[in-house]
């Protein structure tokens, strides 16, 4: 495999069909980059983990794009926040509330954001990462309903800062819980919405999580020595097991670069196709709901 990768890193890239073309044939990928695997993650390597495994913005963006109306009842209750008494619960909740914050922000529900922000601030302070969460500014932006771009930027940036700090300070376990929390809540939101609105794109999004789940399991299993983590891994494995009947196929094609008015766009033509039986979708929905509700329970 390594040999195969080694032989394949001189790149010849054909830029077809665009209004202008680029020749990037003399760019060489460094060997050490091609050889780096993601199968073994040490605690130290948590600092270099795969980013964007779970993105509240993208999940919410997809829900909004499909025209599905906002549903407040799907949000995790923030009233539980003060009752979470372990770092484990708090970190997982931080991820869950982060996903909900993205959902609220994307639908411009700024009035309801304050409650969510307050819960996040309290948990972040308990975990000693409150310094990265600029609550006064976020509250002001949410209250004024102005400058939603800034609200979104500061929200996401604060989360990134907290996550980065945890990873860099030997608290990668909490970062892993945060990431998993965002992912579980994102999957919960989409599966619940699909129950009412069986949109094809949303269903495909659920099926694609099989790819992401592989990477998430690698991160979580890094902490399997912790009994609490082990129980959580078992729960996530229940979701993982339901994905076994999801089949993902790939159609290979060359990418295309288009330059228009000085702006460059790369269009990927290689595509993934998800096949998921209806029964599998139902099982994924049920088990996700069960695990997510267990996670937010006091």
């Amino acid at each position: 495999m390594k040999h195969h990768l080694l032989t394949g890193f001189v790149l010849l890239f054909f830029w077809g069909c665009g209004q202008k073309t680029q020749n990037l044939s003399n760019i060489v990928v460094p060997e050490d980059i091609l050889n780096q695997g993601i199968n073994e993650i040490t605690d130290q390597a948590m600092q270099k983990i795969i980013d964007n495994i779970a993105s509240p913005v993208e999940v919410a963006g997809l829900l909004k794009k499909t025209g599905v109306p906002f549903n407040r009842s799907l949000l995790a209750p923030t009233s539980y926040a003060s009752a979470y008494n372990s770092a484990f619960q708090k970190a997982a909740a931080l991820g869950i509330f982060g996903a909900d914050l993205g959902y609220l922000n994307m639908y411009n529900k700024t009035g309801s954001v304050i409650e969510n922000l307050s819960a996040i601030r309290d948990i972040a302070e308990d975990l000693k990462i409150g310094q990265f969460f600029d609550f006064p500014t976020l509250k002001r932006l949410a209250s004024s309903r102005e400058n939603l771009d800034s609200l979104m930027f500061i929200s996401v940036h604060s989360y990134n800062q907290m996550d980065k700090y945890l990873r860099e300070n030997q608290r990668g376990n909490l970062s892993a819980l945060m990431i998993a929390g965002v992912w579980v809540e994102g999957l919960y939101l989409v599966t619940q919405v699909v129950k009412q609105y069986p949109d094809k794109q949303l269903i495909e999004k659920i099926g694609e999580q099989k790819i992401i789940l592989d990477n998430l399991m690698i991160i979580l299993k890094n902490y399997s020595n912790d009994p609490k983590f082990n129980e959580y891994i078992s729960d996530i494995e229940k979701i993982y097991a339901e994905f076994r009947n999801v089949k993902i196929y790939f159609e290979i094609a060359e990418p295309e670069a288009v330059e228009k008015d000085g702006k460059l766009t790369i269009i990927q033509h290689e595509t993934s196709i998800v096949k998921m039986p209806d029964e599998t979708l139902k099982k994924i929905t049920a088990v996700t709901e069960e695990i997510r509700n267990k996670l937010i329970k006091i």
Binding site: L11, N23, L24, N215, K263, Q268, T271
Partner: peptide, 28 residues
């Protein structure tokens, strides 16, 4: 190991401040 895009084209020397990527395949 396939490069999809770059902010710099070494053959023309042209630099781009940004580029958009239309993703059609979920993955790392």
């Amino acid at each position: 190991n396939v490069m999809l895009g770059s902010t710099y084209n070494p053959s023309t020397g042209k630099e781009y401040k940004s580029f958009d990527f239309q993703c059609q395949k979920t993955g790392v």
